[in-house]
């Protein structure tokens, strides 16, 4: 999915405003970047068709709101990049700093922390001798 600059800005606006109709979105962008109402309407329509917005008809106008929260959207993109690796190890185009298995637990982390401390103490005592 590719997003145009205006689409990105509109999505950003709706993440902050939560609900707005085309006129409200136009009023906001008219001051900042100009453009026409029909451009905003078609942008909203495109975002709706891409599944990023949902809309509700109230009277003659559609009320738009983000179909997905910003954090969830970004999270899903990152998850998509990493889960590709889950399904078929090797298709991932990224190298993550660290990631965890669902089975990983606090006890295991504490055990690793103990290993670090022990080794650090050992190094200190070796250095002081």
């Amino acid at each position: 999915m590719q997003l145009g600059e205006l689409e990105k800005q509109v999505l950003q606006y709706l993440w902050e405003t939560e609900v707005a109709d085309a006129k409200q979105v136009y009023a906001y962008f008219e001051k900042r970047r100009g453009g026409s109402l029909s451009t905003i309407q078609s942008t909203l329509d495109r975002l709706f068709k891409k599944g990023l917005l949902k809309r509700d008809k109230q009277g003659h106008a559609f009320q738009y709101q983000a179909a997905i929260e910003r954090d969830t959207f970004i999270g899903q993109l990152i998850k998509g990049l990493t889960s590709e690796f889950n399904a078929d190890k090797g298709n991932s185009l990224l190298a993550a700093f660290t990631s965890v298995s669902p089975e990983f637990n606090e006890d295991q982390l504490e055990r690793l922390e103990q290993i670090i401390e022990d080794q650090r103490d050992k190094n200190k005592s070796d250095g002081s001798v």
């Binding site: 990152i78 690796f85 295991q108």
Partner: peptide, 22 residues
């Protein structure tokens, strides 16, 4: 956030990275 924590990086990987570093 409706996301799983990153990729399924097998548990021994973190173990091995830490022990290798130390």
């Amino acid at each position: 956030a409706s996301v799983q924590p990153a990729c399924d990086f097998l548990t021994p990987q973190l173990d091995e990275r830490v022990t290798y570093l130390m």
